[in-house]
Structure formats: structure tokens, C-alpha cells
Computed example of a mutant assay.
Amino acid sequence: MRIGIDFDNTIACYDGVFHQAALERGLIPPDLARDKNSVRDHLNGSGRKDDFTELQGYVYGARMELVSPYPGFVKFVGAARRAGHDLFVVSHKTQHPILGPKHDMHAAARSFLVGRGLTGAKPDQIDPENVFFELTKDEKVARAHDLACDVFIDDLPEILSLGGFPPRMRKILFDPQNQFATEAGGFDRHISWAAISADLTRDRA
């Protein structure tokens, strides 16, 4: 199979990262909840939406060393490659932040994949040539179409609902917070990479 995989919040797990980065920059009180949405809502609700926009660029461009792959993803990559599947990272993000220093967020994401041992020349890694960061959602979908993906895995129902994917492609919603149980119509939904691995590779070890 040819399996396309989103990057942010599908491979890269930002749990606690925005909280840590916001504390470093003095943007939030230390007792604020650690999830990204709480940081966003606090800043937006206090009239500092631009601070959150700049914080995103800071995390995605300069602090990816704080980020880890979701539990089970490294094992999934190895199992999928052993099963003979081709893996593609297909994501969308601007190359540079809208506000703040002009970090290269595409380069930072590629460095994350290399640094975590996810891409490389080994048989249990993703080929670096199979990593694509597009500038828009439509370009992301077009890339998945051009790659003839048999499966696409994403954390957002709104992405999987877009037209333009290969017509018979299977869509898997990655929902680790179990927040989209009522919105998964037309998709298969899994809450962990272990479940996805069991589904796509039959590797239950």
C-alpha cells in the first residue's frame, strides 16, 4: 500500500510544548492547563491573538527539539516498511511564520524527522524523498492524489472531507484525544498509532 501521513498533530505530538514555550516567553501564568488549546484560548481571550500566532512560528520553527513523535509511531513505521508499504509524509504549512522571525518551518520539520530517526536510507525508515510540505490544504490533497495514496491518515476531519483525494482512497482519522467520535462519518477512526499499526500491518506485537 501507499500510505500518506499528515505531520503536525499526527506524527508530531505537541502535548505540553506550547505551554512550555509560552512560559519561556512570559506569555501565560504557570498554573494554566498544559494543552495547546488552553494556551491559545488564554492568549486570544486576553486580546493577544498575535502573540499566539507568533508562538506557533516559534515552536514550529525554533523549538522542535521539544517535540516528540506520538507514542507508537516509530514502531508503526518499522512495521509498515517490513510489510512492504510505501510511506509518504504529506502536510501543509507556510514555510515561514506570519509574524515574528522568519524561521524555515519546512526545514525544521524535516530536521525533526531526521533527528528522530524517522527518515533515512534504512529499510525501516521513510525515504526522505517521500516527504512533502505543501503551502495550502488544496496542494496537500493534490499531492496525495498525485502520489496515488491508497490510505491517508490525518488528525482533522475537515482535511479528510476535502475533495480531490484519490477516489477509492481509505481515510483514517487519527483521534488521540477521542474528540471526534461523532464526526467520523465516512472515515475509519483510531485513537492510537498502535491501533493503526494493528489495522494496516497486522503487527500486534
Rank of each mutant, 00 (worst) to 15 (best):
G16P: 02
G16S: 09
H19C: 02
H19E: 02
Q20T: 14
E24M: 12
E24T: 13
G26R: 05
P29L: 06
P30A: 06
D31W: 09
D31T: 11
D31A: 11
A33P: 09
K36Y: 03
K36R: 12
N37E: 15
R40D: 04
H42E: 12
L43Y: 02
S46E: 12
E54Q: 13
G57Y: 02
Y58R: 03
V59G: 00
G61A: 04
G61N: 06
M64R: 08
V67M: 02
V67I: 11
S68V: 13
P71C: 10
K75N: 12
F76R: 00
V77C: 04
V77Q: 04
A79R: 00
A80W: 00
R81V: 02
R82H: 10
A83P: 00
H85A: 10
H85V: 07
H85N: 08
D86S: 15
V89I: 09
L99N: 07
D104Y: 06
D104W: 06
R110Q: 15
S111F: 10
S111H: 14
V114L: 14
V114C: 14
G117T: 08
G120A: 11
G120Q: 06
A121S: 13
D124W: 09
D124S: 09
P128T: 01
P128G: 03
N130I: 04
N130V: 04
N130G: 12
N130P: 02
E134G: 01
E134T: 10
E134M: 11
L135A: 15
